[in-house]
Design a protein around this nucleic acid. Structure first.
Lengths: 217, 217
DNA sequence: TCCCGTATCAAACGCGTGTTTGACATGGGC
DNA sequence: GCCCATGTCAAACACGCGTTTGATACGGGA
């Protein structure tokens, strides 16, 4: 008798107005983008009065910041955990480091955290200035991966490493974003991101190949 | 004595109100995004009256569509030309095909068509529905590359090929978009996309590696 | 019982938006 | 000289935006 059955996402189980606003705003931004939705859209989806946003969050922008920080922290925590495991159990294995970077967002795509992931991507590209400035926090987080890769690939010059890391993030972000539409059309619906394991393998193979790593065992 | 000195971009040389609106809107969207700019911002930058946008283009959205179609056609034309050359002079060379895909947008980054390129990316991700729907046109264009790659890599299953193509487009788009900022911070400003030839080589190496191709000769 | 912090509500405020209007200027064709 | 198509202009339109207000309800502690 501890909690409600199961929360839809990793939000607190209580379902007060504040949480409903949080989740409605996250879902709407994930689907329609930052500028396309209004405070009135949010409160309509959340089933609360329009003044509730400002009462609980002060400002629409502060609400977005709150969502962003919550979700970014969740993602970074999971990645950091996997990175620690990788460097401890498979020291020097660059592929394992890349896997720690890639696996969390890729698995999120196919469960109920897909919404959180798409929100994060929207925020990074379209979000208000206050949101985009927190990218500097992300950089501190990503540097751990760069350093781990540098240690695992001592022969690779640092600028080459950084460029390839930059390209790898491009693949990741693109994959989290909207446009499976184009892939679906190109493939006559033969390619869909349903099979999590296969998607993760393909992503890891592609990025590891881009880093010049030999194919997996 | 044929034309004015040199047009800033590949627009007609005449500099009437219509062209000034075109270029001002393109530049503003490239820098600030689709929803962030208003008709009044555009006419202020273009030095024309506010009614000029609706007089010449009918609607703000139609203006954006006009810019998008113009620039997309330019990019696709250039890519198609390179693809034809590649398949004629280096038949069966997958790397040459990828180069035809990658080279035009990569070179645009470092000349005065950077604005056009960033507009195209903004449009694809944030643009109004009418703009994003023209992605289907792009798909017809991209299919030529998929088919050429399939012919050059007969051993690669089509679904694997399509996924890797999807990933490759991710790298490309990410690279055309805003965020060299993160790379600059990560590298302490050691990595900048100034050197066109080096950027093109790095991109091509990464994507060819992702396709499992051996390093270039 | 009274009180006060918490929360919700309908209504409104001021402002910026995309678009439209109607007047006015220009200039080549008859 | 007149006409009409082509542009340009200041002003205004209706509307949606984020935010604020002031009233009202609830509910546990003194």
């Amino acid at each position: 008798m501890m909690t409600e059955p199961t929360p839809a996402a990793s939000q607190p189980v209580e379902d007060g107005a504040k949480q409903r606003i949080f989740r409605a705003a996250e879902a709407l931004v994930a689907e329609h983008g930052f500028e396309a939705i209004s405070t009135r859209d949010i409160v309509a989806a959340a089933g609360v009065n329009i003044a509730a946003v400002n009462y609980h969050y002060g400002t629409k922008t502060k609400l977005m910041l709150d969502i962003f920080r919550t979700r970014a922290a969740e993602l970074n925590r999971e990645r950091t955990r996997l990175l620690r495991i990788a460097t401890e159990t498979q020291p020097g294995d660059a592929r394992a480091i890349l896997r720690a970077l890639i696996e969390p967002p890729t698995l999120w795509i196919s469960d109920d955290r897909r919404v959180a992931l798409r929100f994060l991507n929207r925020a990074r590209s379209e979000g208000p200035l206050e949101v985009r400035e927190t990218i500097r926090t992300d950089v501190r987080h990503l540097r751990r991966f760069v350093d781990a890769l540098a240690a695992a690939l001592p022969a690779l010059p640092r600028d080459e490493l950084l460029w390839r890391f930059h390209f790898a993030l491009g693949v990741l972000h693109h994959n989290q974003a909207a446009d499976y539409a184009r892939l679906a059309i190109l493939s006559d619906d033969a390619c869909a991101p349903d099979d999590r394991a296969a998607l993760l393998r393909r992503l890891l193979d592609f990025i590891a190949g881009g880093f010049g790593l030999p194919p997996a065992a």
